[in-house]
């Protein structure tokens, strides 16, 4: 029996309202929090050069002053992507308020992460009983743990002085701390201070620091295609930077309010990992899994509490697979 006109109209009216109500529930925008670390600056290049727009990705970049600020912004739900290290990833996982996964390896810190000290500290072993400035819950811990392990100093023998990266130069200059675990661009400013010397950098422990793109589980589930396209835009930025190093340096410098030379030197200490170079980092025995495992160990060492986390659980390479076609 055909519906009467009134019934059809009423149903139509209801459908229109339901659809209009549903239409309000837009998928979340890609909001990426990154600190001034040059390795994360290629997302800025991708955005500024219009590569993200070309692939139809609505990327919003939120500047933070540190990895911790990025992590906090993520944990507050203000962003759904952050540029971070596996240590931030583990930190987020520990809180369990918001699930996160590493979806892309961004760079490998060759000597980017450093430990700077002032006299009388001249080597890592001299850190026993000293105050070391670290950004709490950040990759600093991983670098410090790696250095102490290599020097055979127990983690409990040093005192951690938690502070943001931006506060470290003053604290080191004022003698508030004997050493600081830092990275460019903060490290550049601190290395220009008198008597400050480098006692450790990641060239001594090449696999220690890996930067990754961390995504919320929600954004992985809701916008996998956007993630895939963002990765392609990122690769395009890498390619563009290799082809136009001066312009890329200039862009990165403007973004982080540094001069080009500083950026150039920092980039020399970083190895950017393109989409085609991701293979070695993924998998059960990949570098990324090891980095996550080391991050867990570092946190356990400094916190004194064991962390029950499966490194594989924090990794999600599906978007990467689609982006690379593998």
């Amino acid at each position: 029996m055909p519906l009467s006109s009134l019934r059809r109209g009423t149903i139509l009216l209801v459908v229109v309202f339901v659809v209009s109500a549903c239409a309000r529930d837009d998928p979340p925008a890609l909001r990426l929090a990154i600190n001034p670390w040059p390795g994360y600056g290629f997302f800025y290049i991708a955005q500024q050069q219009g590569f993200t727009a070309d692939v139809g990705v609505d990327l919003e970049i939120v500047d933070t002053m540190s990895l911790r600020d990025s992590r906090l912004a993520f944990e507050r739900g203000q962003v759904n992507l952050i540029g971070a290290t596996p240590l931030e990833l583990v930190q987020i996982a520990r809180r369990a308020d918001r699930e996160a996964r590493a979806v892309l390896v961004l760079d490998h810190s060759m000597s980017g992460d450093v430990i700077l000290a002032r006299p009388p500290v001249s080597a890592v072993r001299d850190l026993r009983g000293r105050d070391v400035a670290v950004e709490p819950g950040s990759v600093n811990l991983l670098v410090l743990a790696s250095a102490l392990e290599k020097a055979g100093v127990p983690a409990s023998d040093v005192r951690l002085a938690p502070m943001p990266q931006s506060a470290m130069p003053d604290a080191l200059a004022d003698g508030e701390v004997s050493a600081a675990v830092t990275y460019p661009p903060f490290s550049d400013r601190m290395e220009r201070l008198p008597e400050v010397r480098r006692i450790f950098d990641t060239t001594e422990s090449p696999d220690t620091v890996v930067d990754v793109l961390v995504a919320s589980k929600a954004i992985i589930r809701q916008r996998p295609d956007a993630l895939r396209r963002l990765m392609r835009a990122y690769q395009r930025a890498l390619d563009w930077a290799r082809a136009n190093p001066a312009a890329a340096t200039e862009l990165l410098a403007r973004r982080s309010s540094q001069n080009s030379n500083e950026i150039r030197r920092a980039l020399e200490r970083i190895r950017m990992i393109g989409l085609r170079e991701q293979r070695d980092y993924w998998g059960e025995n990949g570098h990324l899994t090891g980095a996550v495992r080391r991050s867990i160990a570092a946190l356990e060492a400094f916190d004194g509490r064991s962390i029950d986390l499966d490194p594989e659980y924090l990794l999600d390479g599906r978007a990467l697979k689609k982006a690379t076609g593998r």
Binding site: A33, S66, R76
Partner: peptide, 9 residues
């Protein structure tokens, strides 16, 4: 700057 960036996040 940190304060501003935190708020602006």
């Amino acid at each position: 700057e940190r304060f501003v960036l935190t708020v602006a996040a």
